[in-house]
Design a protein around this nucleic acid. Sequence first.
DNA 1: TTTCTTCTCCACGAAAAAGGGGATTTTTCA
DNA 2: TGAAAAATCCCCTTTTTCGTGGAGAAGAAA
Lengths: 206, 206
Amino acid sequence: MIKTFIIDDHPMVIEGIRHMLQNTDNVQVTGSAADGYAAIDALKANPADVALVDINLPDLDGIELCKKLRERFPKLKILGLSTFKERSYITRMIDAGASGYLLKNANGEELEEAIKAAYKGRMYLSMEAAQTIARPAVQQPDLPLLTSREKEVLALIAEGMTNNEIAEKLFISPLTVDSHRKNLLAKFGVKNTAAMVKYGMESGFI
Amino acid sequence: MIKTFIIDDHPMVIEGIRHMLQNTDNVQVTGSAADGYAAIDALKANPADVALVDINLPDLDGIELCKKLRERFPKLKILGLSTFKERSYITRMIDAGASGYLLKNANGEELEEAIKAAYKGRMYLSMEAAQTIARPAVQQPDLPLLTSREKEVLALIAEGMTNNEIAEKLFISPLTVDSHRKNLLAKFGVKNTAAMVKYGMESGFI
DNA sequence: TTTCTTCTCCACGAAAAAGGGGATTTTTCA
DNA sequence: TGAAAAATCCCCTTTTTCGTGGAGAAGAAA
């Protein structure tokens, strides 16, 4: 029996996976968690063989969680899980040590196959995920990776604060805020604050 | 028995909902579809009382589908379904005739309650959805009324264009654009472009 | 240990926006 | 037809942002 742990903040998805796996011979769902730290705690008490990790979690993102899980549970195999929208995360997830990547439109068979493959130490990629990786880097503008400070500054900019006001609030120099602002503009590939706020909101950073 | 139909492109979510509802007395899942047109076809052959509609579908978005469903199946009650990220869709979904809105982190009880409420012709909103709607309504009773020119300028500002670029595009003087910009700032009650774009997007103007 | 990233800070100049006025011509519509 | 509203245009000053560059310290990663 392959002990499988599910990490996703949507009970519907957890239920769906449980349901899909309940009639399999070799896979057993031994637990689930709605966020990263809860998952680590649960896995300490009750180790598993394979973890299904959603990319979007309330506390940590999937990549960070993947790294942390691999530190603490070296034997645990990790499968990334996401919707088609977060394709750009695939390579980063693999880099972080994941054993594979599934889209949420996977069916039960694929899910079972992926878990078995991961358990045996192989890599499993869903068809779409494999194609995304195989395709050269002509990708559409994928989401920039912002540092926590940058996200903080971005949020305050969107609130309507000036560099000086932000500097005062964060206890740093206005020049530093300006640097963050410039880095944000560069990362988003836009030329002014207006476009940055729009992009930031569309991408869910704000 | 309330006949319920599920429209979501992720089998995992569909399975999860089925699973959550399988032990209820009054709710029965009579079908599911992965996209909007498949849903319409299936509902023609096999009518349902309530439809759970995901906001993100491969062909139509939830709002469009909601309108189409209400045209063809006037008796069908529709519940919107999404993750926390697409909050801004709530009001548009309601406008399109939905009987309620659920987040995917809902549990089985909430799901059942929502379906029953919709079936009885009541409106059901998850706590977060209700708060999202209540907030702008209470805090800002009067959303600024923008003229069509102002909306046009606002959209271009959000695209990252400067006054001069907008002026060129609209064949008017940069000074005029600046006037519109100032009027927009005044109407929104904000002090710079960043905050204006943010509120503009939150209010659905952009 | 070295390298990389992040966060911090800085200089200088140009461009753009914000704040404060005002004014004229079209549209809209009661 | 006449008032309101919208759209257009203008001036001046100050503030803020943008573009281009560089650089040091701390900590994590390799």
